[in-house]
Simulated scan of single mutants.
Amino acid sequence: MHEYIPTVVLVIGLFAGIWLNRRDFSKLKADTNRQFGDTKSEMNRQFDAVNKRLDRADSRLDRIEARLDRVDADLREFYGSGKQLEGRVNELSARIK
């Protein structure tokens, strides 16, 4: 009977170690999952902030593009009327000569 005591103590210690290790592993897994969740939510928050800034920049670029289109139309109208005036001036100059 006495020869089994060290083996029984060793087996009980082994099972206790496995049980404690599994408990620590579960805790480690839970901590890791929590940290990944925190990291994911922080990344989502940062991406949302970047997306808002990009949306504002896109809106500004749209307004600038609209202004440039208006300037382009005004310049085309101005130069178009300038050509008409130039033709009229040439016509009048020819009549005077």
Rank of each mutant, 00 (worst) to 15 (best):
D38E: 15
A49T: 11
D24K: 11
F25R: 02
G17I: 05
S26Q: 15
I18W: 02
A57F: 12
T7P: 00
T32W: 05
S59R: 09
R22E: 10
H2G: 02
K29C: 05
Y4T: 03
E42F: 09
G37C: 02
L28Y: 03
K29Y: 11
S41N: 13
D48T: 12
I18R: 02
W19Y: 14
Y4N: 05
Q46V: 14
Y4L: 04
H2D: 09
N44R: 12
K40Q: 13
E3F: 06
R34E: 01
R56L: 11
F36M: 14
E3G: 04
R22C: 06
S41P: 08
Y4I: 02
L14C: 08
K40D: 13
F15N: 00
E42A: 15
V8I: 12
L20A: 12
K27E: 01
H2M: 09
V9A: 03
G17N: 10
D31R: 12
D24S: 10
M43S: 11
V11F: 04
A16V: 07
T32D: 08
K27A: 09
S26M: 10
I12V: 12
L20T: 07
F36C: 05
M43G: 08
G37M: 01
L28M: 03
R34M: 10
D38K: 12
A57K: 11
D58P: 02
W19N: 04
F25Q: 03
S41C: 02
E3R: 12
R45N: 14
F15P: 00
G17R: 01
K52S: 02
R45Y: 15
I18L: 12
Q35F: 10
D58Y: 11
I5V: 14
V8W: 01
S26V: 00
E3V: 05
R53K: 15
D48I: 03
R53Q: 15
N51S: 14
A49F: 09
V9L: 13
E3Q: 08
K27T: 13
S26T: 03
R53S: 12
D55V: 06
D38I: 14
